[in-house]
Nucleic acid binder design. Sequence first.
DNA 1: CGAATTACCGTATGTCATACTGAAACTACT
DNA 2: AGTAGTTTCAGTATGACATACGGTAATTCG
Lengths: 232, 232
Amino acid sequence: MPTNADAGAEPGPPSTARRAGRPRRLTIDTVVNEAIRHADEQGLTELTMPRLARRLGVGTMTLYGYVASKQELVDQMASALFADLTVPDSGDDWRHQVSEYFRRFRKAALAHPSLAGLLANGRVTIPAVFDHLETLLGAMRAGGLGTEDAVRLFYSSLCFTIGEVQWEVPRTHAQSPAAYAQQWHDLLAALDPRAYPLLTGPAAAHLGTVSSDEQFEWGLARIIATAGPHRV
Amino acid sequence: MPTNADAGAEPGPPSTARRAGRPRRLTIDTVVNEAIRHADEQGLTELTMPRLARRLGVGTMTLYGYVASKQELVDQMASALFADLTVPDSGDDWRHQVSEYFRRFRKAALAHPSLAGLLANGRVTIPAVFDHLETLLGAMRAGGLGTEDAVRLFYSSLCFTIGEVQWEVPRTHAQSPAAYAQQWHDLLAALDPRAYPLLTGPAAAHLGTVSSDEQFEWGLARIIATAGPHRV
DNA sequence: CGAATTACCGTATGTCATACTGAAACTACT
DNA sequence: AGTAGTTTCAGTATGACATACGGTAATTCG
């Protein structure tokens, strides 16, 4: 665990693990992790407090000893998604560094497709995002990029990555790849070739068959590779 | 009770507007529009069938004569967002045309901030999106862009636009601009200048103060302006 | 060993989406 | 007209949900 997200170190009895009173049956991490597992298996909409409690072998209200509300639980699930996200080691090329960072960002989001939608709710003030931004800004500036462009580059890449994940998840990760290909095939087959000569003709090959990874790389490269001192 | 003023020109097969049976008190458009208004005022999470029904002066179950489920209602709200979205007239420069299209797309989404999150649920098979894609593909090809690049350009721009809206809405549109600026100010002020010399120093000016419109234009330009025959 | 402390969880409340059902309002046919 | 047929309206009912409350159980401390 490279990043410490918990800034609220208790000033009282820090090392005393044993307190008076009935011992807890669970830990907050157990609860959050099991919630993530449940969302992965059944989908986020199937996650309810009673179901999660049953899964953990406790009463429903017990969960409220660990989180103040369901919303807080969901927030913690979202944060956990990015707990392991780190900035790549500085290399010779800041472009590689930034690209790789967002590649990791996307990978983290896609690791739990059902949670990717949480990116949208605006509550995810991604922990340590300031650390990452600070580090990457430094790399970009060292590479000759102006501060304003560096900020905008980061912002644009972030938006693109979030949007790409948003778009991709329901289409590829929420179903089998075969079902995805079939869906595109059916969709294109239903179009009138006279009304849609391009979509049913030359463009057809690029719509359903190209891997999403490639699409992501293409777009990210547009944003990143062309910025900086050498940009057109 | 306010009589609905919606134009109810039935485009169905028969010109017989009058059928047997009790007349409807509402139209589907009235229902969807009032739902959108409610979401704009109170937020999407506050939209419930009982509340919407009360607002329309009907019983809760009456709504189910217009939509099969709440999900269908929400889907229709999302579709309505883009009902007026059109492809800009063909100009001399396909880049302007594509840029303007996504500018309109974003504007449509931001017109109802609380609904922007619906972009994320993957159910919005934006109506007529195929029309738009077909038209823009034609323009791009006519401008010398290869089909594959054209598809990827559209896809990347779409992802970026969706992500930008996603990111922006909770930060700027769900609150007053002043509150937004204050939030950034507080956030930056809380950072330790020694740990975050860039964020608190040269980059600070570009974080909270730059307009989102400019950020959007910057990113979109990275994607669009550099693609094509002249790209690096 | 009792008292204090803390966590667990059964029960209760209010809201939600929605199924069912019969009343209500209109047209069409006689 | 009147009645039959058709369609919509809306009250009630059901089961699930998030969560407040309060009693009970498990532990440590004096």
